[in-house]
Design a protein around this nucleic acid. Structure first.
Length: 472
RNA sequence: GGCGGUGUAGCCAAGUGGUAAGGCAAGGGACUGCAAAUCCCUGACUCAGCGGUUCGAAUCCGCUCGCCGCCUCCA
């Protein structure tokens, strides 16, 4: 499969470097607030990539996403709310895990906390100082950018170009404006850890280097995150990693595009943002997933109600097909005729097309289009197939589930519907059949209308009446 | 000033050299007691504009215009 690698700026063939294990490191949240709808994009996209690797490539995936639980914003929040930094971090770390669950996203194989790695980071920084790649000033430690050869290679910047007209503040004590903080001296009252340079806390760029190496070992296959992290964050990671040792760092760098809101970048300071949990109050996780994966991950995605509603309708179309087939074929069995077998066999090409799409820089948009084609084809067969051949429809559902799995789509609902509920509905449907047979349409329509208000849709088809739950 | 992205039907959106996927919305027909769903049919003489390369371009090159991002914490 091919993936666009920011490091080389082209599509490179991807395969794990060591055996069948892939290491993926995704820059995770700073837990000073809830995740917003922009933060959620890399979470959904790269989780989907992970599931694709696991199910379609047969690779074991080590998926590490850090949690930044010490940082200036946490300290700021702590002062504002007069809660401890640790309390705030705990609150939002929990909220982050709750969100993952609500989105139907598997937890990372590891979610290291920055505060658990301070000692390692201190050692790491000390090593950089020793080698002349970093220097101390009044309790702060800075990385000496000029000491590494291709600083700027990832983001395509040349050092000289950064000076003129840039907004880089010329700091008091830095040797060079681009030098970045590795260790920050603590002011009174701030959380602090001991170090050779006095009490303080680690800078943000260091944790990802130290923790990715700690958790992935030699499996430094993919490092992913939003493209706003390309510079300076990822650039700074690479600089530190290559300065600290000759061991190779990540080979593939994947960057997702930004989420826009009304054509502009969403930003808290612009007030045009929404929290991710707010979206889940109005739309189910499947709709949200479909919406995010309906746009190629590297391009900007404009968030809109219209877009979500379109996604909801598109998902509903597939859901209906699956629900109807399962309801109709709940317990029939038998030998299919040639028509059914032919249809079943024709399904293989959808899998091929799907894999082809996702193998091409994880083109989930094309992948989703294949699923929709599969739905159309299945509906067509469903409209004409008779008798036992209809059993072939089950194979289509199975395939929809198989292909939907990496995308977080079309999986069987949980045990949400009780057998009593199903029994009652079957009872109502049976009574209504009697009413319709006696042409008591006012009553039968009332049953249908009122069930619709309760969120259950009835459809009278040649195969009988089917009921399905409407999306929340 | 430097770096980068993007402009495809009413809306969303794939496609990056071989003659325009898919979804949503819309209209007509079939089916239905009526609905809903589903099926069939209807959509861009064209891919921001202009010029060039090519047998052939939405796709490559040049210029112009529009929108957006990064260069400071940010997914």
């Amino acid at each position: 499969m091919k993936l666009y690698n920011t490091l080389t700026k082209r599509l490179d063939p991807f395969a794990p470097q060591h055996g069948r294990t892939v290491g993926i490191y995704v820059c995770g949240p700073t837990v000073y607030d809830h995740l917003h709808i922009g933060n959620v994009r890399p979470v959904l996209v790269f989780s989907a990539l992970r599931r694709y690797f696991e199910r379609f490539k047969g690779w074991r995936v080590l998926y590490v996403q850090n949690v930044t639980d010490i940082d200036d914003r946490l300290i700021k929040r702590s002062i504002e709310t007069s809660q401890t930094v640790a309390t705030i971090a705990e609150t939002y770390t929990r909220a982050y895990f709750d969100l993952l669950e609500a989105l139907g996203v598997d937890r990372p194989t590891a979610s290291p906390l920055a505060t658990d790695y301070v000692e390692e980071m201190v050692q790491f920084i000390a090593g950089l100082v020793e080698k002349g790649h970093a220097y101390e000033r009044d309790g702060d430690v800075y990385f000496r950018v000029a000491s590494v050869a291709d600083y700027g290679a990832l983001s395509g910047r040349r050092l000289a170009d950064q000076e003129a007209g840039s907004r880089v503040r010329v700091s008091e004590s830095k040797e060079d404006p681009l030098d970045f903080t590795l260790w920050k001296a603590a002011r009174p009252g701030e959380p602090e850890w001991p170090s050779p340079w006095g009490p303080g806390r680690p800078g943000w760029h260091t944790e990802c280097v130290v923790m990715s190496r700690a958790h992935l070992g030699e499996h430094l296959d993919i490092h992913a995150g939003g493209n706003d992290l390309m510079f300076p964050h990822h650039e700074n990671e690479i600089a530190q990693a290559t300065a600290s040792s000759d061991a190779p760092f990540f080979r593939f760098w994947l960057h997702n595009g930004m989420l826009h809101f009304g054509g502009e970048e969403m930003h808290k300071s612009l007030g045009n943002f929404r929290y991710a949990y707010q979206i889940l109050e109005a739309y189910d996780a499947e709709t949200v997933e479909y919406f995010y994966l309906s746009r190629h991950y590297r391009k900007p995605l404009d968030f809109s109600e219209d877009g979500l509603r379109a996604a909801q309708a598109a998902v509903a179309r597939v859901r209906r097909l699956i629900d109807d087939i399962e309801a109709e074929l709940r317990q029939s069995d038998g030998e299919m005729g040639p028509a059914g077998q032919a249809f079943s066999q024709s399904l293989a090409r959808f899998r091929e097309r799907f894999v082809e799409a996702l193998d091409d820089d994880f083109n989930t948009v094309d992948g989703v289009a294949v699923l929709q084609d599969l739905v159309s084809e299945t509906n067509r067969f469903r409209a004409e197939a008779v008798g036992i051949d209809r059993l072939a429809l089950r194979d289509a559902v199975e395939l929809l589930r198989e292909l939907g799995w990496p995308l977080g789509l079309f999986q069987p609902a949980g045990a949400s519907s009780s057998s009593i509920e199903a029994g009652l509905l079957d009872l109502l449907v049976g009574l209504r059949r009697e009413l319709r047979a006696r042409k008591a349409f006012d009553l039968s329509d009332r049953v249908r209308d009122q069930l619709a208000e309760l969120g259950v849709e009835l459809k009278d088809t040649p195969q009988g009446t089917l009921w399905s739950r409407l999306a929340p």
